[in-house]
Each structure stands twice: as C-alpha cells, then as structure tokens.
C-alpha cells in the first residue's frame, strides 16, 4: 500500500540528518525493549483471543453437547453425535454443495467479466470519460450486502419487478427468479457476481497497468493474435492478483449470509441453503446450538485450511 508520507517527510528528513550528524552513537539496536513491545502488542492479542480463540474453543465444547439455546442449563454430553448427524443430514450436505457451486460459478463469472471490463477500462485509462465511468462501475462492491439483496429482490420480483417487465417486452416468459428451485441459486450467483465483478476488475487492472507498452508492440510485430497476447503477455502479469482475488473471494463466499437472508432465506426448499445460513437457522430458529456449533466448527475447519494457504500467500505479496 502506498501512502503519501513523502509530503511530511520533507521537513522531518532535514531534521533527522541534522541530529544524526551530531551523534556518533551506534544505531544498530533500535528494537523496542521487552516491556514496551509487550505493552504495544499485548492488548490487541488479548482482544483477539477473546474474539476468536475463546469462541472457537467454546463452539467445539458446545458441539459435543445436546443443548438448546432456550435451556442452556440443561446440557447432555453426546460426544461426536452432532458431527455424525451433520454428515448424514441431507440439508447440511446440500448446503455444502450449494456453497461450492455458488463459489465456483460466481468466481468464474467474476474473473471472465472482470477481465473484459479491465481490458476496456485499461484502454480508456488516459481519458477522463474512462476514469469517471470506472469510478461509477466499482460502486457495487462496497454497498451494504443486504441492500444489494433487496435491490435485486425489487428488480426480480415475479409480478411487479422491472426485470420481468423488460423481458416480456422482448417476448420472454416471466421468470420466478427466487421462487423456482432450478433458477433460485442461479439468481443468487448472478447477484453475487454483480457485486464482486468490479473487485476482480480492479485487481486485474492493477496487474494489467504494469505491462509495458513495448511488450504489446513486440507481440504485434510478431503477428500475435489477441488470444496469444492474453495467454503469453497478460495472463502472467495478472496471475498473482487473480490468485489473491480467488483466495479472498472463497473465504467471503464461505461466510455469505446477508444476500440469502433477504432474498431466498435458503429456499425454495433447500435450493439456496448455504453453510452459514444453515448454522444460523440451527442456532437461532431451532435453538439447537449444539448442532449449530458443530456446523460452525466444520465451516471453521474448512476456512482454516483455505486461510493457511491464503496467509502464506498474502504475507509473501505484502513483503515483496
């Protein structure tokens, strides 16, 4: 991340070199002394233990019990029964499948469309009109997720939505976007992709601007077609940013909740049941917190695996 610290550095630098000139002390040891370092870091670590380690351990503990949210004092130890039940629960398995389908397909759309958009805005990056349109195109990704869900519930409403009205004008039968089990997941995927394609676009744009014009010119001289350029010039430049985008989006999709909460509520039937929504319903609709916690622990284990890969990668990128 580049910050314009240089503005402030001007005066300070002058001051520093002056004070350094006066002193002949060895400067090698600038590490915080033990006590100060501890005081700086410890409060935040303690905070994070309270908000992540403790809840995790507590979830694991609860997942071994049959316990109701409404009667927390009555716990029955059941061992791994909750986990075994989960793995035999068709709804939970469906929610894993749906989450996987949602993650893979929305990311495929985001990458392909994001690349096309990035190419278009790349060619316009020197022009004012291109910059203005790009700023407007990236609005979806920071908007409150439930608002995104509601915006599309309004547009895709089967009877009064504008989408079906526009489709009927070109002779397409009205669709039940969220009501038809074979369409509902697709609708959620498309909305998800709508919100996050701009993110992929910005990532790829950041990679594409790093390609020097001379590489394009050389490719043109060699008589390379556009797909040669895409494969041998552009892909290598954006490979890393795409990978980062994929990692972060996988983690976000595992957490996806708000969008489904306001559009389909997991339905119709189990058509759009996602893992986070499943756990939410167990906990706060059926009050089965033991069972819900087991689901949460499994979700967490999946995220930990992905996170381990992600963290290693992000650290490498940040230190470059």
């Amino acid at each position: 991340m580049v910050f314009d610290v240089k503005i402030y550095l001007g005066d300070t630098m002058a001051q520093i070199s002056y004070s350094l000139g006066k002193l002949v002390l060895p400067l090698s040891k600038i590490d915080l002394d033990k006590r100060a370092g501890f005081l700086f870091i410890f409060p935040a670590v303690l905070y994070l233990i309270f908000l992540s380690v403790f809840p995790f351990l507590y979830s694991v503990y609860l997942s071994l019990y049959d316990v109701k949210l409404t009667r927390l004092d009555k716990k029955y130890f059941v061992g791994l029964e909750n986990y075994l039940n989960l793995l035999n629960d068709p709804l939970f398995l469906k929610s894993i499948l749906n989450t996987a389908i949602l993650t893979v397909s929305s990311m495929a759309i985001e990458i392909v469309l994001g690349f096309v958009c990035a190419k278009i805005f790349l060619s316009l990056r020197e022009q004012r009109v291109g910059q203005v349109l790009r700023s407007m195109s990236i609005l979806p990704m920071m908007i409150t997720p439930i608002c995104v869900g509601l915006i599309f519930s309004y547009i895709l409403n089967p009877t009064l939505g504008i989408a079906n009205y526009l489709l009927s004008n070109v002779g397409v039968e009205p669709l039940s976007w969220f009501g038809d089990p074979s369409v509902a997941l697709l609708s959620v995927i498309l909305i998800n992709a709508w919100q996050w394609t701009p993110f992929m676009m910005l990532l790829m744009l950041a990679g594409l601007v790093s390609i020097p014009d001379s590489l394009y010119e050389a490719a043109e001289l060699e008589g390379a077609k556009w797909y040669h350029v895409a494969r041998w010039v552009e892909l290598p430049a954006i490979k890393d940013v795409i990978l980062i985008g994929i990692i972060l989006r996988v983690i976000d999709n595992l957490k996806l909740f708000d969008l489904v909460y306001v559009t389909t509520r997991g339905g119709p039937g189990d058509a759009t049941e996602l893992v986070t929504f499943f756990a939410y319903r167990q906990d706060f609709r059926f009050f089965q917190v033991g069972y819900g916690s087991a689901a949460a622990v499994l979700i967490l284990l999946i995220s930990i695996i992905i996170t381990t890969i992600a963290v290693r990668y992000l650290r490498r990128m940040q230190n470059d």
């Binding site: 935040a44 670590v45 994070l48 908000l51 992540s52 403790f54 809840p55 995790f56 507590y58 979830s59 609860l62 949210l69 983690i251 595992l254 957490k255 909740f257 986070t276 756990a279 939410y280 906990d283 917190v289 819900g292 916690s293 949460a296 622990v297 979700i299 967490l300 995220s303 930990i304 992905i306 996170t307 381990t308 992600a310 963290v311 992000l314 650290r315």
Partner: peptide, 16 residues
C-alpha cells in the same frame, strides 16, 4: 492475527 480475519462470524456468534 491475519488468520483471525478469515474467521466466519457464524463460528463466534453463539459463544459471544
């Protein structure tokens, strides 16, 4: 610290 950012909120909701 970074990895705690990846934690799904649902996993912390009931304990909290």
């Amino acid at each position: 610290i970074l990895s705690t950012r990846m934690m799904p909120p649902i996993a912390a909701a009931v304990p909290l």
